[in-house]
């Protein structure tokens, strides 16, 4: 029940209270009652018809980089460990 899916905002209603989002090929009108400062092009987590929070593109990139780096760390011992993951 706590599942929420990242969806992209494609239009915001003049009232500012609703937005059209797309998930893959599906378009849906959702409520913006729980978020502030969203704009067309933003990704939001969609939960039971509501945008629950914005998805941060920068943080997503950073997390992915950390994941890749964690995997690389176990490469041959000659590879120097990255400074952020010295342990």
């Amino acid at each position: 029940m706590c599942l929420a899916i990242p969806a992209r905002i494609t239009a915001i209603a003049p009232s500012g209270q609703e937005a059209t989002v797309t998930l893959g090929d599906v378009a849906k009108v959702v409520s913006l009652a729980l978020v502030d400062d969203v704009a067309v092009g933003d990704y939001v987590l969609l939960h039971v018809g509501y945008a629950l929070s914005k998805v941060s593109a920068e943080e997503a990139e950073r997390t992915l980089a950390l994941m890749v780096e964690a995997g690389l760390m176990e490469a041959p011992p000659s590879a120097a460990p990255s400074p952020t993951d010295a342990r």
Binding site: M1, C2, L34, H47, V48, Y50, L52
Partner: peptide, 13 residues
Amino acid sequence: AIGFETTTPPTAV
């Protein structure tokens, strides 16, 4: 209404 903190705000709205 049922759910954890995720699902509560939509009920409040």
